[in-house]
Amino acid sequence: MTPVLDVKNLSTHFMTRRGVLKAVDDVSFTVGQREIVGLVGESGSGKSITGFSILGLVDPPGRVVSGQILFNGEDLLKMPPTAMRTIRGKRIAMIFQDPMMTLNPVLSVGTQMVETVLAHDKVSRAEARQRSRDALGLVGIPSPEERLDSYPHQFSGGMRQRVAIAIALLHRPDLIIADEPTTALDVTIQSQILFEIKRLAGEFGMALIWISHDLGVVAALADRIMVMYAGKIVEAGQVDGVLTEPRHPYTSGLLSAVPAAVPRGEPLRPIPGFAPSPLSRPSGCAFRDRCARATEICATEPMLEIAADREFRCFHPHLGRAA
């Protein structure tokens, strides 16, 4: 089966006054049909920029400098802007982090949904409204007909995120990129939204890239997980494998810092130090300053090791059961 998305050697750099900021640095991955992929990393690791790069929504001074983004075999980076616009929202949709900010405060929910339908399909306004109403119903918003005329401030955060999901679903896209869509919500609402998205993705056969810093969320949701650090994917594999037997010291460090993953009574072990500034990353492995296993060889760039169903970039991987 050909993958929905095949990203090859993607690099997105920000040309700032203080130098070139390599937000995404030679990232390659694929997303299969109907696959849910979790993209995990700390703030500033480049996970959101990866998502925006796929949609061609990186704001200046940022720019995709090299690589290929094959979407159903077509390179999105070579596509003219008008063609790209017909992909956005139609074939690839995105859900943003903060539901308080993603809806336009001065337009009714109905307007914001109907315009999305009309941007891609030549249908009557009445039909567009009909489809919007159905989409609202689908994500579990009560009395969708009346809610179409409401404005975003009349919805709670969780409800707004449901509206954003409904907008993403309007065209039944092949791929949804969800950029930390539950981070800004209460825990109870989080699990509802998670459940809802997983159900809908399965129902409509959509692939999903779930960007998050929360390993617990990704463990509950994803088939595969990719761990990003300092603009690179440092480890990728099936969720079960990566979370139980991490190879990369950064992944195991992340796991030891998650309260739920550590047995009761044992202390949490936070990763020492801070993620390096994107402007002054160490040469070689960017994690080596914080890594207990680092040796001299880590000053050179580790190559991607591909072993069975796992890939990682490390000279000194954990080989047995760790963490």
Partner: peptide
């Protein structure tokens, strides 16, 4: 919301 509008393909 402007970025979201772009992501919707407007």
């Amino acid at each position: 919301f402007v970025k979201f509008a772009r992501a919707k393909g407007l």
